[in-house]
């Protein structure tokens, strides 16, 4: 589904990704672990198409299409989704309005009928119940006054509603208590299937106990230095990155 080849990227002239190669087939969930500064967030922003992240070499194809040539909204419509590490607050933009606008933008691009406010409310309520989110979070401006955990839940609500083909979770687990962590895992697991893949970026093995990955990769200095099965996460947890970096 997603094929990253020899990816080099710079941020403000600084080389962050140095020949990253990674393939995530349909139906698989992969995890990327790595120390601070190894390029984890840069990878997620490059995939989502954020300005200022310049690809200097390499390619990313998403279901056979050149992802890097697409605008951020085109990527979203094609099924790419990034759950942000630090979701922005949007004062003045109502959460319900935002969610419905996003959902309809994607439905429109897929050639599906737009849904009205009533239909949306019904859909959102059902998803929010699962995520243990109070309904009043729909009425508030996007993420304004939300706790860290509430922001992450709001990201999961977007993930559940937009139902993308590919989700990147950028340290979604950071700062979450165990209950919230399980809700994140449940959201991702509920989407798992032959036409859904995910890349879970995390520092800790903890999340991977709940979202069991098919493959685990270790990112260091902008490259994958080691790949393995779920047991690699446990190994990292025990030996630390230094041990793996030394061995690589």
């Amino acid at each position: 589904m997603l094929k990253i080849e020899n990816l080099h990227a710079t941020v403000e002239g600084k080389q962050i990704l140095n020949g990253l190669t990674l393939e995530i087939p349909s139906g698989e969930v992969h995890a990327i672990m790595g120390p601070n500064g190894s390029g984890k967030s840069t990878l997620s922003y490059v995939l989502a198409g954020r300005e200022g992240y310049e690809v200097t070499e390499g390619s990313v194809t998403f279901n056979g299409v050149d992802l890097l040539a697409m605008e951020p909204e085109e990527r979203a419509v094609a099924g790419m989704f990034l759950a942000f590490q630090a979701p922005v607050e949007l004062p003045g933009v109502g959460n319900a309005n935002f969610l419905r606008t996003a959902l309809n933008a994607i439905r429109r691009a897929r050639g599906e009928a737009e849904i009205d406010a009533m239909q949306f409310l019904k859909l959102a309520r059902a998803r929010m119940k699962v995520l243990n989110m109070p309904e009043e979070m729909l009425k508030r401006p996007v993420n304004v006054g939300f706790s860290g955990g509430e922001k992450k839940r709001n990201e999961m609500l977007q993930l559940a509603l937009l139902a993308p083909k590919f989700a990147v979770l950028d340290e979604t687990d950071s700062g979450l208590d165990i209950d919230a962590l399980k809700l994140v895992a449940d959201t991702v697991n509920s989407l798992r299937g032959s036409d859904f893949s995910a890349l879970v970026i995390t520092h800790y093995q903890r999340l991977l106990n709940h979202i069991v990955p098919d493959r685990v990769h270790v990112l260091s200095a902008g490259r994958i230095i080691k790949s393995g099965g779920p047991e690699l996460a446990e190994e990292l947890e025990a030996a630390g990155y230094a041990g793996v970096q030394a061995a690589a």
């Binding site: 198409g49 954020r50 951020p72 909204e73 979203a76 989704f81 606008t101 994607i106």
Partner: peptide, 10 residues
């Protein structure tokens, strides 16, 4: 960028 990343045209 956040809004666009959710599929909303620029």
């Amino acid at each position: 960028f956040f809004l666009r990343s959710r599929g909303i045209p620029e």
